[in-house]
Design a protein around this nucleic acid. Structure first.
Length: 254
DNA sequence: AAGAGCTACAACCGCTGCTTC
DNA sequence: TGAAGCAGCGGTTGTAGCTCT
């Protein structure tokens, strides 16, 4: 595939300051994009893919460095509940943070969660013992399809039948061995069902207007009068994470 | 002080979707 | 309409630095 012409092979591994400089100058001149021509124009022996990654994750102006703040962590958790592993989507809600950074963060913390306390493990074991013998391990694919089916039923907007609900709870316990994991799963379901009542675009706009980091724009003129997002003025001024107007059914996330 | 284990981060790989011809 | 190239995404791996024993 593309990303430039590999001659005797692209240089790999850590970037040198010289390479960074060449790439930065290229982007200054030509803008982002056309990564496959970077090697031709600059003499860099790096694939376009590698150049793009370096620029996006490291060289791009405005990137924040260092650990995520507790507030950002909260946003990541919420956004992950909404979007799952769509890191680039989540990253859009965290100006200055990259998808790679968030992905790394989540992985590290998810790992931690996986190794959570013995207590949790024991509780999970107790819960598991109450479950009928699972055939999930024998038929993982089939089971995941079932899960999707149930999930679809859940989000169809109809009242979930108790039978379906019970099924789903069982699957959650099988899928998420620790209590924390189960919490995350349930959180996701709540949000998912709530999302069905809200147009995605409206949600995104209200949640975070990326073009208006200081909140200078007129917040009264949001599309379709929908206003259930995070109040960015409160967010920036107080470091607080609150909702402008909580819609009915807004999931209790924290 | 030294080794083991852990964490955070940078970078690569493979896949997918979009665009162009 | 299909093939080829490009761009982007998510998963995974490698490693430097830190902490713990």
């Amino acid at each position: 595939m593309g990303w430039g012409i590999p001659k005797q092979g692209w240089t790999k591994g850590p970037w040198t300051p010289e390479e960074d400089m060449l790439l930065s100058e290229y982007v200054k001149l030509h803008g982002e994009g056309r990564w496959s021509s970077v090697s031709k124009s600059t003499g860099l022996n790096r694939s376009g893919k590698s150049c793009r990654l370096r620029w996006v994750n490291y060289l791009r102006p405005g990137l924040k460095k260092g650990q995520l703040t507790p507030l950002e962590e909260g946003i990541v958790v919420e956004m992950h509940a909404l979007w799952g592993n769509r890191w680039s989507t989540i990253a859009r809600y965290l100006p200055g943070r990259t998808d790679n950074e968030i992905k790394n963060y989540w992985r590290t913390h998810f790992k931690k969660k996986g190794k959570s306390s013995k207590q949790d493990m024991e509780k999970a074991q107790t819960l598991k013992q109450k479950q009928p013998p699972k055939k999930q391990e024998q038929e993982p694919q089939e089971d995941s399809m079932k899960r999707e089916t149930i999930s679809d039923e859940d989000t169809s907007g109809e009242q979930m039948s108790s039978e379906v609900q019970e099924k789903q709870e069982k699957l959650v316990i099988q899928e998420y061995p620790t209590l924390e994991d189960q919490c995350f799963s349930v959180m996701s379901q709540d949000v998912a069902s709530w999302l069905d009542t809200v147009r995605e675009d409206d949600f995104c706009f209200s949640l975070w207007n990326l073009d208006d980091p200081k909140g200078d724009l007129d917040h009264d003129h949001q599309p379709t009068g929908f206003s259930c997002g995070i109040d960015s003025r409160n967010f920036y001024n107080n470091g607080d994470f609150r909702l402008a107007d909580e819609p009915q059914g807004w999931p209790n996330l924290i």
